[in-house]
Design a protein around this nucleic acid. Sequence first.
DNA 1: CAGATATATATCGCTTCAATATATTTGTTG
DNA 2: CAACAAATATATTGAAGCGATATATATCTG
Lengths: 196, 196
Amino acid sequence: MDVKTLCLGVLVLGDASGYEIKKHFEEGPFSHFHAAGFGSIYPALGTLLADGLVTCTEMAQEGRPDKKVYSLTEAGRRAFRRELHKAPSPDSYRSEAIFMMFFGDLLDPDHLGEVYQRHLAVHRAKVDCLSDPDCTVAGRDRKFVHGLGLAVSRAIVDYMENSRGVLFGAGDVVDEDAVDEGGGGERGAETPRAAE
Amino acid sequence: MDVKTLCLGVLVLGDASGYEIKKHFEEGPFSHFHAAGFGSIYPALGTLLADGLVTCTEMAQEGRPDKKVYSLTEAGRRAFRRELHKAPSPDSYRSEAIFMMFFGDLLDPDHLGEVYQRHLAVHRAKVDCLSDPDCTVAGRDRKFVHGLGLAVSRAIVDYMENSRGVLFGAGDVVDEDAVDEGGGGERGAETPRAAE
DNA sequence: CAGATATATATCGCTTCAATATATTTGTTG
DNA sequence: CAACAAATATATTGAAGCGATATATATCTG
């Protein structure tokens, strides 16, 4: 399944521009199980347009740059359903943070603590986001997928909180305040201190 | 973090050939959170060799084709530790199966049931594999990562079993024996013909 | 008023992936 | 025992995708 199909999937939910499609992968309901960057979305939309699977309406807006809003055609909808009926390729999960923790014995304890805290913070933020009532979705299948994402993130948070000692060794607990956010400045909300 | 670093990580665990490195990503402890194919492993090993981060011993074995066994050099070990101290890039999880279930309303009910059963079977197999005492690893950090993988797979299995009704709708239960897989076979099992 | 952030599209080069080619041995099955 | 499939082992190639970057403008923040 390529980026073309992913784009068709977003367009099933409603018309969108390339920029908005990317936001769907970053923030929307797709963010838990797929991703795509500009470098693949724009060429994909070009191909889809050439193949007649989408149409494009240029919206010259005052202020912001022109917006190219893409809509699914009937042929596009059919092509999407056809793709959905193929056999799914196996899941792939990649986590550099977990890779680093796996080699924790080679790591500077401070850095290990930072990687651990950051990873935990990311998944806590995900739980918060998915628990937010604003974020609820319509339709039984959407609800199912939403719940699955929440269950996984909760499992990660629970495990990491309860098995902290396995990673850091009992009696050798790293000072938690030392690993305060400071310079990183990405999406991670402030780190609520862990259970102790 | 590129494939070169991933290969160095495998070689930290012990000398290996390209073929064996790939098996580590398919079956070993890395399989839960990373992957790499031949098309990236062999070029990566070539670069590492040219950079002096690994050495290569050609083992002319009777029977099977020659085996090129790679070993980490001191420079390689240093380079690996340096890489490990960079900031990890965010996790990425991609699942075509979940994508399909998300659009379950557009799917043939048979195909939806198949995708669901297959996905559940894959994660049940993962739980079995990780619960197997043969599979236990040494070292507190390895144990931590191992436990994390198990926790996630368990959460997926539990959620999918308990929330079956959300996806399929109460009263419209799909026959379970139709797509049963048994415990043992993992990905390679025979493909029951899909719709089309 | 400066600088950062958000909206919006697009391209380039490098990395990575899936498929395929080659060669040999071991296991299976009719 | 011949025929075939599967495992062991390395390598290449073409296509796809990702990260970084360029461009342009508007709004928000200090």
